[in-house]
Amino acid sequence: MPLIAEVFPVEKDDFVTAGEASAKIKRTLKKLGVDSALLRRISVCSYEVELNLVIHSLGGTIDFQVTQDSVMLLVKDRGPGIANLELAMREGWSTAPESVRMMGFGAGMGLPNMKRNADEFDIKSEAGVGTEILMKFRLK
C-alpha cells in the first residue's frame, strides 16, 4: 500500500501549468528527506515526462506513489501513441514541431534520459491509442 498517492492531470499544450506537477513531486520528496542524488534523478524524470505530456500527447496523467521502499511514476496519456518505439528511444530523435523546439524543448533526449535516470523503466505504446510509461526508483 502506498503511503502517498496523488494523480496529477496534465493537459496538452498547457504551458502555463507545465512543470507544476513535477515541482509538487519534488517538494514532497524533499520533505521526506529523499537522498540528494536520487532526488535529482526523480526530478529529471518527472519534469521530462510532464513536458512530454504537454508537448507530444493529447493529455494524460502522472500517478505518483511513494511506498516505504520505492517511488513510482506511472504516466498514461490519451494518445496519439508512438509509431516506432525503438526510434523514439534513440537520443536526438524527435517529432516535436518547430514551434516547440523554438521554446527550447523537443531535443529528442527525453525518453532516453528518463530510461537512464530511472531504476526501472518500462514503456508501452500503441499508435492511435496512447502511451504508458512506468518508472520506479528504489529508496535506500
Binding site: L3, I4, K31, L32, G33, S36, V66, Q68
Partner: peptide, 22 residues
C-alpha cells in the same frame, strides 16, 4: 546540506507524517 526542511530522519516516519499533513 542543512536538513531543516525534512520532516523526519526516518523515511517511514516521514511518510506517515506526510500522509497526516495531506
Amino acid at each position: 546540506p542543512n536538513p531543516a526542511m525534512k520532516l523526519d530522519d526516518n523515511l517511514y516516519v516521514a511518510l506517515q507524517k506526510m500522509e497526516r499533513i495531506e
